[in-house]
């Protein structure tokens, strides 16, 4: 995780905090130059900054939370895999389309001594990388690669961990031509058939069917500032409000946060993030993820594959709100 050394990228709602912090460092420099003791004042200002940060990040609006979820420095799938596993061999290709999709990565990792299959959407770390990764938007070949790796995991009795972080499946010409709908649909059905434990975690952005295509499992976890939606607020605003500028309103209405999903009976576990978001302290975020994965995996490994499959079915079976009679 090489992001901590670089200059921070500030989101608009972080501006007051940044101003306060720059004042603190100014005072500190001034005091050092003139050899005056201002530690009391510094201490006061710093605790105010800490308090302000906490206030900002505990009262984010859904639209602001989406900004955090899409933060360019937010730890990605490969960042987390590197942090939580002891070994890692990335595997490539769906053996069908003649092209490896770099927006969706996967491979075998050693997690707490056990080989597991780790699969996730991969956004780029900078513009060049993002172009190569197609901003984390997979083509059908990506979903078919994911399925190929999951079948492999099933054969060799490896638990599957997926990491969700995509604006959505790529809505391009070739993607349609190669059967984007079929590729996702196939995964949805087949993931119910797999015998091994499956744990899915939304680490950033959960963009609709493109997220769900690797999102069927025994557990769904979400980081505190990640989001998961049926349609991006931008698309929803332009369809329902006929005005893309209403996306903040759409974000509010769509109920996209971890708390919303928990109350709708979709989310199993919310993972708290360091104050300031996962990118403020990626090591701490990775520790949280590792612990949660470990706990859930141990519970799931106690069950037989029949029990897991039947509970997985029931978990999705009960989702939905309607009246009857």
């Amino acid at each position: 995780m090489a992001t901590t050394e670089r200059r921070p990228i500030l989101l608009d709602f972080e501006k007051p905090l940044a101003e306060l912090e720059s004042r603190i460092s100014q005072i500190r420099e001034l005091a050092e130059d003139n050899d005056v003791d201002v530690s009391d004042q510094i201490y006061q200002l710093e605790s105010r900054a800490q308090q302000l940060r906490q206030e900002i990040f505990t009262s984010l609006s859904p639209a602001q939370r989406i900004q955090v979820a899409r933060h360019p420095r937010r730890p990605s799938t490969l960042d987390y895999i590197q942090a939580i596993s002891d070994e890692w061999i990335e595997l490539h290709g769906d053996r069908r389309s003649g092209k490896d999709d770099r927006a969706l990565v996967g491979g075998i990792a050693r997690f707490e001594g056990r080989p597991v299959m780790m699969i996730g959407h991969q956004k780029g770390r900078d513009t060049k990388d993002n172009v190569a990764r197609n901003f984390g938007m997979p083509v059908p070949g990506g979903y078919r690669k994911a399925m190929r790796l999951m079948e492999h995991a099933n054969r060799f009795d490896m638990p599957i961990m997926t990491f969700i972080d995509t604006p959505g499946a790529w809505p391009g010409f070739e993607a349609e031509e190669m059967g984007q709908g079929e590729a996702i649909a196939y995964n949805l059905r087949e993931m119910f058939r797999l015998d091994v434990p499956i744990i899915c975690t939304v680490i950033g952005e959960g963009g609709s069917g493109g997220a769900l295509g690797i999102g069927v499992g025994d557990r769904l976890m979400m980081f505190e500032h990640s989001v998961y939606y049926v349609a991006s607020p931008e698309a929803c605003a332009s369809i329902l409000w006929k005005d893309a500028a209403r996306s903040a309103q759409a974000a509010e209405a769509l109920k996209v946060t971890a708390w919303d999903l928990k109350s709708l009976g979709i989310l199993d576990q919310l993972l708290p993030e360091p104050i300031g978001g996962a990118h403020a302290n990626p090591i701490e975020a990775a520790d949280t993820l590792k612990q949660a994965l470990s706990q859930n995996l141990n519970v799931l490994l106690e069950l037989s594959s029949e029990q897991r499959r039947s509970q997985r079915y029931d978990k999705f079976r009960q989702i939905g709100v309607f009246s009857e009679g």
Binding site: L188, R189, G209, Y229, V230, D260, L264, F316
Partner: peptide, 26 residues
């Protein structure tokens, strides 16, 4: 497609129906 007015509940219906189809197929 999915009904936006029911948010993530709509998206999850895709998985729910696919699950039932998996058993039918089995």
């Amino acid at each position: 497609g999915a009904r936006m007015q029911e948010g993530m509940l709509s998206l999850m219906q895709m998985a729910k129906i696919s699950a039932a189809l998996e058993r039918h197929r089995e």
